[in-house]
Simulated assay, not measured.
Amino acid sequence: MTDILVLGAGYTGTAAAIRAAVRTRRTGGKVTLVNASPRFTERLRLHQTAAGERLSDFALDEVVAGTGIDLVVGRVAGIDLDHHQVSLEGGRVLGYDKLIYALGTVTDTSVPGVADHACTYDDHAGAVRLSERLGALTRGTVVVAGGGLTGVESATELAEAYPHLHVVLLTRGRPGSMMSAAARAHLDGALERLGVAVRAGADITKVLPDGVELDGGGLVHSDATLWTTGTRGLPLAAESGLSVDERGRIVVDSALRSVSHPDVYAVGDAAAVSQPYGVLHGTCQGGIPTGLHAADSLAATLRGKAARPFRFGYFHQPVSLGRADAVIQFTRPDDSPRRWFLKGRAAIVYKETVSSSPMTTFKLLKRGLVPVWMFALTAGLT
């Protein structure tokens, strides 16, 4: 019997656990999945939660039912790499032979005042708190810090859901800067249509209870601030002795094993996964394929076979612009924009199709199948 312990039951960790259970069933694999909450959180839709939308609720024990996976609800407190043990808050200790680390990342709160005065999307509760705060305002200003895709989706969603509030998007660069000129023009038009005030070139130096300070002395009033400017790996990885990069992500080899501790696999946002074009950035698009590949690598090792190197190419950048609009930028494998993009109704249908409930994906994995949409993502470089 090989004890396989998976930490974290987000998109990536759940996919990795199910895949590992299926692939190691005949070789004596026993999979245990640890998560702080008994519920599955759709992190891709937390901006909708912040806008007051009630999303589907999934119990993790139902998600993994029929796989033989043991679900343990608890928050990880420490990892003893020498003794192959994981301790949980409350004192429980779990042993492992192989570990899959899928605990993701948390918001980078290194800017003064962020931890005390800004809202984040680190968990479902954080999005709910922002929703409650905005719902209590009869008027005022909401500042969204960060012009990446999460910031753009949040700014448009909040502006549409709370039309009586003034939404300001603060960003160092231009929103949607990774897109083609035509796709970016549609994104800009949506921000303008929804009344989002965009302030590019803004470098925030401090978050206050009622505003944000900018480099150079400027001040933007805010009745609520949402921070989406970047993420970091949990301190747990480095504190445990795993090799990490400058953002606290676990450095892995081509099989997604820790370069310092090969019995530990790291996947999703928590891993620094190198490809010929650079290190993967944290998205569900790349996260689930890493989870599946780590499970396959682990299963191959248990069968005495060599693990195949991980190869991944990006395919698209889907961005919702409120509930009535969206833009989809199709990309080359290195994530640079192609000429093709979708907008409006066609983009909404496309985005809702590829980011629909992950339960369909998990059901296919239980049957030993890989969802069709993943073949495009893992087709390799062209």
Results as ranks from 00 to 15, higher is better:
119 C>S: 15
87 S>M: 12
98 K>W: 10
107 T>F: 04
134 L>P: 07
134 L>Y: 11
93 V>Q: 14
134 L>K: 06
112 P>N: 08
106 V>R: 15
94 L>Q: 06
100 I>K: 14
96 Y>E: 09
98 K>L: 05
122 D>E: 11
133 R>P: 02
98 K>F: 07
94 L>R: 02
127 A>M: 11
138 T>G: 15
121 Y>E: 12
101 Y>K: 13
121 Y>C: 06
91 G>K: 01
124 H>P: 01
108 D>K: 14
142 V>R: 01
88 L>G: 04
123 D>A: 03
121 Y>F: 12
122 D>G: 10
144 V>G: 00
92 R>P: 03
135 G>E: 02
115 A>M: 05
91 G>I: 15
129 R>V: 06
110 S>M: 06
135 G>W: 14
119 C>Y: 09
134 L>V: 13
146 G>E: 08
116 D>Y: 00
105 T>Q: 03
136 A>H: 06
99 L>S: 03
128 V>T: 12
112 P>K: 03
144 V>A: 01
117 H>S: 09
111 V>P: 00
86 V>K: 06
137 L>T: 13
119 C>M: 04
97 D>T: 10
89 E>M: 05
86 V>P: 02
117 H>P: 08
115 A>S: 09
137 L>D: 14
113 G>Y: 05
114 V>T: 04
128 V>L: 09
117 H>N: 11
95 G>R: 08
102 A>D: 03
134 L>G: 12
135 G>I: 15
122 D>C: 04
138 T>K: 06
134 L>R: 06
123 D>H: 07
91 G>T: 03
88 L>W: 09
111 V>Q: 00
132 E>K: 13
114 V>W: 06
100 I>E: 15
89 E>P: 03
145 A>S: 07
96 Y>M: 14
94 L>V: 11
99 L>V: 02
101 Y>L: 11
129 R>N: 07
128 V>G: 14
134 L>M: 12
125 A>L: 07
128 V>E: 10
117 H>I: 07
86 V>D: 01
115 A>Q: 06
121 Y>M: 10
91 G>P: 02
132 E>D: 11
90 G>W: 09
112 P>E: 05
124 H>L: 12
96 Y>D: 10
111 V>E: 00
132 E>A: 10
120 T>N: 13
136 A>T: 09
87 S>F: 11
140 G>E: 09
108 D>V: 09
128 V>S: 12
142 V>Q: 01
108 D>W: 15
132 E>F: 06
133 R>Q: 10
141 T>W: 01
116 D>P: 03
129 R>H: 08
121 Y>W: 09
146 G>F: 14
135 G>S: 07
93 V>D: 11
125 A>G: 07
86 V>T: 04
128 V>W: 00
128 V>C: 13
117 H>R: 02
146 G>T: 07
114 V>G: 01
133 R>T: 08
145 A>N: 05
146 G>C: 05
109 T>Q: 13
144 V>Y: 13
109 T>I: 09
108 D>S: 06
88 L>H: 00
107 T>G: 02
96 Y>H: 11
89 E>A: 10
127 A>N: 11
142 V>I: 13
